[in-house]
Design a protein around this nucleic acid. Structure first.
Lengths: 238, 238
DNA sequence: ACAATAGTGTCTGTAAGACAGTATTGG
DNA sequence: CCAATACTGTCTTACAGACACTATTGT
């Protein structure tokens, strides 16, 4: 008898499948990109060969918590140990996985280096978000991805999140470009700088020389644990 | 053999326990209150006799989704069918439930009427939040409650959430009092009214006569589906 | 010297808060 | 006519955006 057919009950309740998926963002070539992996081929596999978000079952023997599980999966794919990692939400229903009632816990991560993909098990690639949202991903991963992008865009309006998408040290012009890439619109240089410096969440890390022109001051985050929340969003009345 | 001891596996993975808990808020006597239920007594029960948030196992035969499960539990306790209901997050780890690795999906609900408590199975009571956070609740429910209050307070700064805490029709002075109760500080009357009316999320429902003084205009929500987001928070620079 | 990029100063419009005023009810 | 509450108007101020200006580098 295959253990896949064990009906799991406890206290009279059948137990759903429990997974964690991670939406991992970075910026490559001034484009917001997301990491996708290819589902294995095979008879038993759901969505064989389709692209999906990295993730999988919670391992109750390895993972002490959902967050730890997300960190493990992130580490396995990118080698990054402590990125910005935030819970996005959970999706659970009877139909999303053909193997049964399942709920997934989605996290979203921001990393600063395009990071060579470590895990050789499954093919993986960084894909620009605007392309990724058009793909038909496995499970309900297109919904998760859309929700992650929406959350990211909305928080970028009033938080320092984009600073986690750059390798340190970074300059204010670089940071502004990331804001503009994610938001899809230009920002005023003067207002932008005032905001960043007034918030006092950066520390100077010496000048950085670019290709042409005057070198810019490099900055580091004072704290890598949490993002800074600005008192207001960009663009007042709109 | 008790089914509580079945080791549930699928695809080689033991399945965690899956529950849903609901933090249900309302305003009684100008105080923000939360609904608590008493855990059953008994040898096998975790946290017997302790106060807890209403919730329990997902029933894969009754619940088509996590959201549906939350709605079912809310309906069972309060009789309210379609309140404001939002996912708060999930808490999952090896230790939070003595019965095994479990993850709970927390929702938070806002209802307008103190609503007689329907379900007679377990004792239940509305408790002011400041008292509730001091109680030692079952499981990690004190954490969930704290997170829910924090989320509520933060969203009240820039959304119309308090409107869901009042029975309709309500007046602007009543609504302002709810904002002040949740935020714990006074708001300017003129600025408050400008905000509410400019956002255009309310519709007039005829005058409402109070105990003394001039009657106030009553209002209803134009849409009960989602909250309105204001362009800015209260109190600019602080 | 000039191109290119980094960084600053100044003006202005907008919108929120402060607060004083007016309006409408009951006793 | 007074108390109590609802509602409005005006003034002020803070701050974000616009945009022109200065600063510092490489070629």
């Amino acid at each position: 008898m295959s253990n896949a057919r064990v009906v799991s009950t406890s206290l009279g309740f059948e137990r759903p499948l429990v997974t964690v998926d991670v939406v991992i963002f970075t910026v490559i070539d001034e484009q917001l990109c997301v990491l996708l992996v290819r589902r294995p081929d095979g008879e038993q596999e759901p969505f064989p060969g389709r692209w999906a978000l990295p993730g999988g079952f919670v391992d109750v023997n390895k993972d002490v918590s959902l967050q730890a599980c997300a960190e493990r999966k992130l580490m396995a794919k990118t080698g990054v140990a402590s990125p910005y990692l935030e819970q996005l939400g959970s999706w659970g229903d009877a139909k999303r996985d053909p193997r049964g009632w399942s709920c997934t816990h989605a996290y979203f991560a921001l990393i600063g280096q395009p990071a060579s993909i470590v895990d050789g098990d499954a093919p993986a690639e960084w894909l620009p978000c605007d392309l990724a949202v058009r793909r038909r991903l496995a499970f309900d991963h297109s919904s998760l991805l859309t929700a992650a992008i929406e959350r990211l865009r909305s928080k970028v309006e009033y938080t320092s999140l984009p600073a986690f998408l750059l390798p340190e040290p970074f300059t204010l012009p670089q940071l502004q470009r990331v804001y503009e890439v994610v938001l899809g619109r230009a920002l005023d240089k003067s207002a932008f700088r005032k905001r960043m410096l007034d918030a006092d969440y950066l520390e100077e890390a010496g000048p950085v020389t670019g290709d042409h022109g005057r070198p810019a001051m490099g900055y580091r985050l004072r704290e890598r644990e949490r993002a800074t929340v600005f008192p207001r969003g960009f663009k007042s009345g709109e």
